[in-house]
Simulated assay, not measured.
Amino acid sequence: VHALGVGATGGLILGMMTRTARGHTGRPLAADAPEMAIYVLIMLAAVLRVLMPWLVPSLYVSSLVASAAAWSAAFLIYLWQYTPWLVSARPDGKDG
């Protein structure tokens, strides 16, 4: 359940948000470095949440905290990257 919630759902939500935001703001549909960091952090969060407690049970709480930090960092990077794009006009002058 946590693999689906943290990894699959979090990754799907961010994937759709990045793709939709790029399309509606007239930006190229290609991932740049911040987006790659977003996707890596979401997958890292899933691994830390699901596999680490199973592989090293003594690090259970630490892996939960690290997973939550990675997941939160992914969404914060999204906000940092996309908020300026979403609150301003498209660079090509078309309607968004």
Rank of each mutant, 00 (worst) to 15 (best):
V1F: 11
V1K: 13
H2K: 11
A3Q: 13
L4T: 14
G5H: 06
G5M: 14
V6R: 05
V6M: 12
V6E: 04
G7F: 03
G7I: 07
A8P: 00
A8F: 14
T9I: 15
T9Q: 12
G10T: 10
G10D: 07
G10P: 06
G10E: 05
G11Q: 08
G11I: 10
G11T: 12
G11R: 09
L12D: 04
I13G: 05
L14N: 03
G15D: 04
M16Q: 13
M16H: 12
M17E: 09
T18Y: 01
R19L: 12
T20Y: 09
A21F: 01
A21V: 03
A21M: 03
R22N: 11
R22K: 14
H24N: 11
T25I: 07
G26F: 02
G26A: 07
G26Q: 07
G26K: 05
R27W: 02
R27L: 12
R27I: 01
R27H: 13
P28V: 06
P28W: 00
P28N: 06
P28L: 03
L29W: 00
L29D: 14
L29Q: 14
A30D: 09
A30R: 11
A31G: 04
D32W: 00
D32T: 14
A33Y: 00
A33Q: 09
E35G: 10
M36H: 13
A37I: 09
I38D: 02
I38Q: 08
I38H: 02
Y39F: 15
V40Y: 07
L41G: 07
L41C: 10
L41I: 05
I42G: 05
M43Q: 15
A45H: 05
A45T: 04
A45D: 02
A46E: 06
A46V: 08
V47T: 14
R49A: 14
V50A: 15
V50M: 10
V50C: 12
M52Y: 07
M52S: 10
M52W: 12
P53R: 08
P53M: 08
W54K: 13
L55W: 15
V56N: 08
V56Q: 11
P57M: 08
P57C: 05
S58D: 09
Y60T: 13
Y60N: 14
V61L: 10
S63Q: 02
L64G: 13
V65F: 01
V65Q: 01
V65N: 01
V65M: 04
A66D: 01
A66Y: 00
S67R: 02
A68V: 05
A68I: 03
A68G: 13
A69S: 10
A69Q: 01
A69W: 00
A70Y: 03
A70K: 04
W71Y: 15
S72Y: 03
A74M: 03
F75K: 12
L76V: 12
I77M: 07
Y78C: 04
Y78F: 15
L79Q: 11
W80Q: 13
W80D: 12
Q81F: 00
Q81T: 15
Y82C: 02
T83L: 12
T83P: 00
T83G: 00
V87D: 00
V87N: 08
S88I: 01
S88D: 04
A89N: 08
A89G: 11
P91D: 06
D92L: 07
D92P: 09
G93E: 02
K94Y: 05
D95Q: 14
D95R: 15
